[in-house]
Design a protein around this nucleic acid. Structure first.
Lengths: 345, 345
DNA sequence: TTTAGCACTCAATAAGATTGAATGCTAAGG
DNA sequence: CCTTAGCATTCAATCTTATTGAGTGCTAAA
């Protein structure tokens, strides 16, 4: 489909601004894109686009820059949807490797995304709260301490090392662990703390200093609650000219990236692919592009790319869409295998 | 002991520059510290100090700033050695908590250090290579995958989830794990890969697609090799005026902080307490203050504080010395307990 | 509807002028 | 011999002003 002249101009402006970070004027447009109509015509169109709220000026006599609405329009109607070949290749390499977990695959993909787009990449894992505890194992160590290892049904591992109470009996500890194992195995992560609380009085029968054991466990459970948010390529943002020379802004953004707020922004976005342009609280110059990712076991996560409002949406979106699509296909294949094998047994 | 006038002036200059980050002039000194001698006298002393290589000028008619040598002299002879009460309190709180591992205690202490000094704090754990493997446990998961958990004698946990080969037999896997367990338990981490290589041909007897298992293990072993370097309060550096407004420098430094080079700098320093002032490769404006830390089990680590050359050495060193001293005392207490109990049995 | 032409705006850059905190040096005084 | 008042000098930082050039909007003609 042919673009209308107005859309064409908007497209050029958005793409040029994305490249240069400088306001775009009518002259520049003609020269760089060899347009056939005159600068005055472009100015007229620009005025129209500005009235429609798609463009903005930084000052009276400056060139135009896209507004949030303008970016949105570009994303929805104008972008090219071209996937970088290198991403295809690199993803292929990752997916062909053996002996890796779902988590690892997702994280590696996320790194590729970050590298190729020069944006920060965020992986929001499925909520650990709904996973069930599969295994609790205690290993005594030297120096009178011990390590407990917890594994959930999806293979998420949490561990906690603690110094044993002074006069603990080996047998008592073993009995104690047996009890805990019986009671907690199969419990959803979200209910662990409550169950542990219930067991507490029974513990007292086994161990004099039961408190240490109780605390070691509850503290470990707390870690499950921590968001499963992984961040990659944070440093890419340094190279963005809008942040590089503004230490204050950079700091703000890095802080945001590490704060739970980011989680809200990523997780609240609905739909398969969501684009949040410059409406992050406080941060008008930050955009988040995120995509849902269906994982094996009916789990659901999100992958997101975070960068300046002036990010290459085409590149970012295309890459993100491609990667999530390929991952989902790959996961389906894995699940199929499992099923087939299950029938065969 | 009374300081000589020259030393006094140097001390004032260093401390004033640390506070303000501005070159210090003779007038300023008199006013802020109500010195009794005249500005000309100070200028004379300054000249002497400059000739001795302890002070520098940024340009012909500027005030003086300390040179690396000047800082070093300050650190060695002039600093106050005053420990912030808040650090004492906070450390007390940490040490009185129960059910925590040595690692956790060190990490929490490191966070306190970072918070209180506004510097980045680095913990270099003891070399994992010398630890012995204590336990290998395989837990089958849903979705046809499994998790292996490795625990070393110091309670360091590494884990790896992988998708199982298609037609694997449960029994075969169990036998296989038994074998591996027998062969690898007690092995120093550094020799794991070699031993695994040796076992490889035997694996083939058990499992058709032995490669997946082999790879999963060797990949997990690779993680042991990763430096046990923990970084805290990286963001503190943003607040340092010398970095805040220089995006380029900031980026360089953050990169350095995450790179293995940092490890070299921290680990190569000898002696109990080491101060490396501004001699980091490429980074003349970065200093590292580090201290050895004797841990239980004759292990040895280091804690370091990283910041601009113009850091508050008194604060940093005093805090670091205090914390490591207290930690070592605490660890000794723990070890004593263990010994006493051991005899009692 | 398009566009040439023109007056106007304004950020960015460059060039000069001013300021002020600092220095070094000299000479006088303790 | 050490200290210090006084003075000429230096130079980054700041402010001031001029210049430039890419941009706009508007009008009138094609």
């Amino acid at each position: 489909m042919e673009l209308s002249r107005r859309d064409l101009i908007l497209k050029h402006i958005v793409e040029h601004f994305i490249k240069t970070a400088l306001p775009v004027g009518s002259q520049t447009l003609i020269q760089t894109y060899q347009l056939t109509f005159s600068s005055a015509t472009i100015r007229n169109e620009m005025l129209a686009l500005e009235n429609a709220g798609l463009l903005e000026k930084t000052h009276t006599s400056s060139g135009r820059i896209p507004s949030s609405k303008g970016y949105q329009y570009y994303v929805d109607h104008l972008r090219n949807k071209s996937v970088d070949e290198r991403i295809k290749q690199q993803l292929q390499v990752i997916l062909s490797q053996k002996a890796q977990s779902v988590t690892e695959i997702i994280q590696k993909s996320s790194e590729i995304l970050s590298n190729m787009t020069k944006l920060a990449s965020v992986v929001l894992g499925p909520n650990a709260q709904q996973e069930k505890l599969m295994s609790i194992q205690v290993t005594p160590l030297e120096n009178n301490s011990a390590t407990v290892v917890f594994i959930t049904d999806s293979g998420y591992v949490e561990n906690k090392t603690f110094v044993l109470p002074k006069n603990i009996e080996k047998d008592a500890l073993a009995d104690c662990m047996n009890l805990i194992n019986k009671r907690l195995r199969g419990t959803p992560v979200s209910e662990l703390s409550a169950k542990m609380e219930a067991i507490k009085p029974i513990l007292e029968d086994f161990i004099a200093e039961h408190d240490v054991v109780y605390q070691a466990f509850t503290q470990a459970f707390l870690n499950f609650a921590g968001e499963r948010l992984k961040l990659y390529g944070k440093d890419s943002l340094f190279n963005q000219p809008e942040f590089a020379h503004d230490g204050d802004k950079l700091r703000k953004i890095l802080t945001l990236l590490e704060s739970p707020k980011l989680l809200n922004h990523v997780s609240k976005s609905s739909g398969n692919v969501a684009v949040n342009i410059g409406d992050q609280d406080q941060n008008h110059d930050l955009s988040i592009v995120s995509s849902k990712l269906r994982m094996p076991g009916e789990k659901e996560g999100r992958i997101a790319l975070v960068g300046p409002t002036r990010m290459d949406y085409d590149r970012a979106l295309s890459a993100l869409e491609y990667v999530t699509e390929m991952l989902e296909k790959y996961f389906e294949k894995i699940s199929d295998k499992t099923k087939v094998e299950g029938k065969g047994k």
